[in-house]
Structures are given as C-alpha cells and as structure tokens.
C-alpha cells in the first residue's frame, strides 16, 4: 500500500517523467542562466529596495548620495592636491581626482558588501529557492544604483572645472558597465570564498585599502611607475581595478585621449572575470545555506 519508488533509478525516472525538480542539487549551467533570466524582476525589486533602504534611515535621505562623494573629493583634494601635490602632470587634477574617487567608491562598496552577499542573507537562502547568483548580482546592482548620484555629480564637476561636453562622454556609461561586470565577477568569487570560510571576510577591508592606493585613485599610476621594469608597469596599469578608472577618465577628460588597447583589455577583463566568477559561483550552488 505504501507509495514508494523502489529503487533510485525508479525514483529518478518517475520524477523525470512528471517534470519534477531535484531539490538541493546544482542545475546545469544552461538552466541556471535561464532561471536567472526569469527571476530578473526579483533581482530588480531586491536591488532597488536595498539601495533605498540604505538611505532611508538618514534625515537628508538621498541627498547623502551626492554629499558623500562631494565631501570625499574635497578632503582628498586637500590632502593629495594641495598638501602632497601628487598631480604627476595631470592638467585638470580636480576632475581627475573626482572620477577616481567616485568610481572607486563603487568598487569598494561592491567588493566590501559583495563578500558577504550570501552570508548576510543566510535566512533568505535558508527559506527560499532561487538561483543564489541573484544575491551577489543584487549587491552589485544596489551599489551601482547607489553610485548614480555620484556619477551625475561628476558631470557637473567636469563642466565646473572647464571640461567641455564631447561625444566621447557617451563612452562613460560603457566604462561603468565594464567596471560593474568586472566587479560582479569578483563578487561572485569572494561571496563563495567567504561563504566557505567566513574568516576571510576580515581580509576584504585590507584588500580594498591596498587597491585604493595602488590603483591610481589619487595620482596617475603610469607617471609614478616610469622607469620601473616594463612588466611591473604593465601589471600596475593594466590590472582591472586601475584600468577601470583609466577608461572612465579617458571617456570624460579632454587631456586624456582614448586608447583602444585599454578599452579592449578592460573588455577582456569584464568578460573573463565576469564569466569565470559566475562559473565558480555556480559550482557551489547546492552548498550555499549549509551551516
């Protein structure tokens, strides 16, 4: 009378015949991507809700999204522009610095919060099924949305510091998109690592700080590595965190001409890190949420 499938093969065949879904097992990559696509509106709802939540507790609300980068630019200008004089031959240093600060704020927020994308949403992972990649994606998207007022501020600052609008400004969103996809790739990887070993989350602030100083946020990296061996020059200027700032600057600054190789290398970084990150993340799909 008991209703059971007698062997593992029977059970699997029965499930397959009626289109049942295997629980707690990793779906094939193709289906995983399809699931992700189907859940895109959930991704959007989650990301926009969270970016709103970040500012909702402040009285000045969304205004902080502009005030914060403005204050940051001001204080860095004081230190690096006036006190330390790290201009390194840059004509429009304020504009140069602003692009670096605003874009790197996106980098640092995405990397910092992305590392805890799974760990910080454990109760959600343990109560619902959805492709877990939604979580790192939502964090990156949230931080992108949170950066938009900062990007708008950049355009204002460009004009205020004497840059004139040009056609190549249209490439700036492309630079941000490449940055976003690359960051997402790193977020996939760190989210998996930190989920496997939460202690690693403590290293993230250190890494972000290191990146802040070696990626040319405050000074042109190329200017300071002149005379170093070529290999070191190449590594320091072409590593993704530096290059994403360089392409952003090329799009906005008159004095920095577009360099095709930089854009091609950055595109390669975005596709490579983004794709690799997704695969690395997907491989552990069934393990997220295990205690």
């Amino acid at each position: 009378m008991a209703d059971v499938a007698t062997s593992a093969e029977d059970a699997q065949a029965l499930a397959a015949r009626h289109g049942l879904r295997a629980l707690s097992e990793r779906p094939p990559l193709g289906r995983y991507l399809r699931d992700l696509w189907e859940r895109r509106s959930f991704l959007w709802t989650l990301a926009s809700a969270e970016s709103r939540a970040e500012n909702e507790t402040n009285r000045l609300g969304q205004l902080w999204a502009v005030l914060n980068p403005a204050l940051l630019i001001g204080s860095y200008y004081l230190i690096f522009g006036l006190l330390l004089r790290t201009r390194g031959g840059v004509e429009n240093f304020v504009a140069f610095l602003s692009i670096g600060v605003v874009m790197f704020t996106f980098t640092s927020a995405a990397v910092t919060r992305g590392a805890r994308a799974i760990l910080g949403r454990m109760s959600m992972v343990r109560t619902l099924h959805f492709p877990r990649a939604i979580l790192p994606m939502s964090v990156t998207l949230t931080e992108l949305l949170a950066s938009i007022p900062g990007f708008a501020l950049l355009l204002v600052l460009m004009i205020a510091t004497g840059e004139s609008p040009q056609l190549k400004w249209l490439l700036f969103p492309v630079a941000v998109a490449l940055q976003g996809v690359t960051l997402l790739g790193f977020t996939f990887i760190t989210a998996r690592l930190v989920n496997a070993s939460p202690d690693l989350a403590n290293l993230v602030p250190v890494i972000v700080r290191l990146l802040r100083y070696i990626s040319g946020v405050f000074f042109p990296i190329a200017h300071y590595v002149q005379g170093a061996p070529v290999i070191i020059q190449e590594v320091l200027t072409k590593q993704p965190f530096a290059l994403m700032l360089t392409t952003g600057r090329q799009a906005l600054l008159e004095g920095t001409p577009l360099a095709l190789t930089d854009w091609l290398v950055m595109t390669a970084w975005a596709l490579g890190v983004g794709g690799l990150g997704l695969i690395i993340f997907w491989r552990a799909e069934a393990r997220y949420g295990l205690g």
Binding site: L20, R21, A22, S123
Partner: peptide, 30 residues
C-alpha cells in the same frame, strides 16, 4: 521544503514547495 539539504539520498518536487509561515523574506529597514 528545501530548507535543509539532505546528507544522503535525493528528493524531487513539483513547483515551489512552501512551508507555511516561514517562506517570506523580509527586510526590516523597508
């Protein structure tokens, strides 16, 4: 309900199984 992964064996389900009262994710700040 898919909330605890099995240590051994397999299970298949139809649709999105729901454990009543638990399956709602809420974000307190919102």
């Amino acid at each position: 309900a898919g909330l605890i992964p099995p240590s051994k064996g397999r299970l298949w389900v139809s649709g999105e199984p729901a454990l009543l009262g638990v399956n709602a994710v809420l974000i307190n700040k919102l």
